[in-house]
Design a protein around this nucleic acid. Structure first.
Lengths: 218, 218
DNA sequence: GTCTATAACCGGATAGAC
DNA sequence: GTCTATCCGGTTATAGAC
């Protein structure tokens, strides 16, 4: 690992530690630089903005989500159970960040932020999210209809973003409202998917999927 | 009107004008103060932050939306046409602000921002939005089932927020993708509402409405 | 007590020397 | 690649005018 690599890592590590402890806003670039033992200018040499550092944080959380979902995915078989398990483990992983999660979401909604899932630089973040839901769908038994299975990961990812939005505003004890949101909406979704997977529903399913394809970019 | 009232108005007017011309970020508080012929400190005496000024801007846009929807509401009768008309006129009203609309949405997503629809101080903004959709529903002929009509305004308001999110990321010429989004999704919604309004669907409808009520606060 | 102005603070970001 | 000095803009402290 080159020296520049190492410096970069040091800065990221310092930033993530401070973000976790004080939150995003309360962490200043001067603090990050000092904690990493470099100058402010140097921190900016490696990271164009504070937002980019936040993006690294976001990536780390995503990796933790994927890891936390692993055991659940190994044992749950039905689509419904797999989906529920993934979302509940996601809620557990992000719980410590509830205080300052709004910031993350705020940037995520801004088209100019690299954190924004629609933004080119943030594409891999989105890809990662969809990949997780692809695993939920692809290995589910009984199987989901093939044409539906192709679009579902993207749709479920969008749905999971709504869950996050709901969760951000959820101040109930133990975040029980968010957990109820998961339980009840996954039930609904699983029923819809099961009904839609019936061969007799193919024409209607096709119409709905065409709509989705026409409205999503790329 | 007292002098302080007038000063306040002057500042808001200056801010709105500059926001419209240069966008939110490019407009500095120093510019606002200068344009209004007051000192920076004075601007802050009347408005706690730049965000509050943005909120005034948001309110103005909302009022324009309501006004623009008026003629359409007077002539359209079916639920589907009323909904479509309101949303298309909304798109027209907000079009000039597409460049910097992300900012507005960004604040709206932040639980601590008064602009946020879930925030106590922003409640009237949300109320206003729902009131508009209540008019879409209540005067629609044929009628929407009563129990459904009670929940629809809130649901439609949420749906309109999704439309805005979609629109923010829409860079298609003439914003045609957003307009297609409206046409196709309103079709879907109107069909769903029509089917659900059938007396035979009452039990299923009740189940769905219970879910909605359980998951929305207040 | 209501209002207004100036000067400063703070933190994100950049320029330019080394 | 790294640093120091500086800019810029949101925000605040404070002093004082009416």
């Amino acid at each position: 690992m080159s020296k520049s690599e190492r410096t970069k890592q040091t800065i990221v590590a310092a930033a993530l530690e401070l973000f976790r402890e004080h939150g995003y806003e309360a962490t200043t670039m001067r603090m990050v630089a000092k904690h990493a033992g470099v100058s402010v200018g140097n921190a900016y040499y490696y990271f164009k903005s504070k937002d980019v550092l936040l993006q690294a944080f976001y990536r780390e959380v995503h990796d933790a989500e994927v890891a936390a979902a692993e055991p659940a995915l190994a044992s749950a078989h039905s689509f419904r159970e797999r989906l529920r398990a993934v979302l509940h483990s996601k809620l557990e992983v992000i719980e410590p960040y509830h205080r300052f999660s709004a910031l993350m979401f705020r940037s995520a909604a801004d088209p100019k932020s690299p954190l924004n899932p629609f933004h080119p630089d943030g594409r891999d973040v989105r890809r990662g999210g969809e990949a997780l839901f692809a695993r939920v769908v692809d290995e589910a038994r009984p199987r989901v209809a093939r044409d539906l299975a192709a679009e579902l990961p993207g749709l479920l990812w969008t749905y999971s973003m709504s869950l996050v939005l709901f969760w951000i505003h959820d101040d109930s004890p133990e975040r029980e409202r968010s957990r109820a949101f998961v339980d009840r909406t996954t039930d609904l979704i699983a029923t819809a998917v099961r009904v839609a997977s019936n061969p007799l529903m193919r024409p209607l399913r096709k119409k709905a999927l065409d709509l989705v394809r026409d409205l999503t970019p790329n």
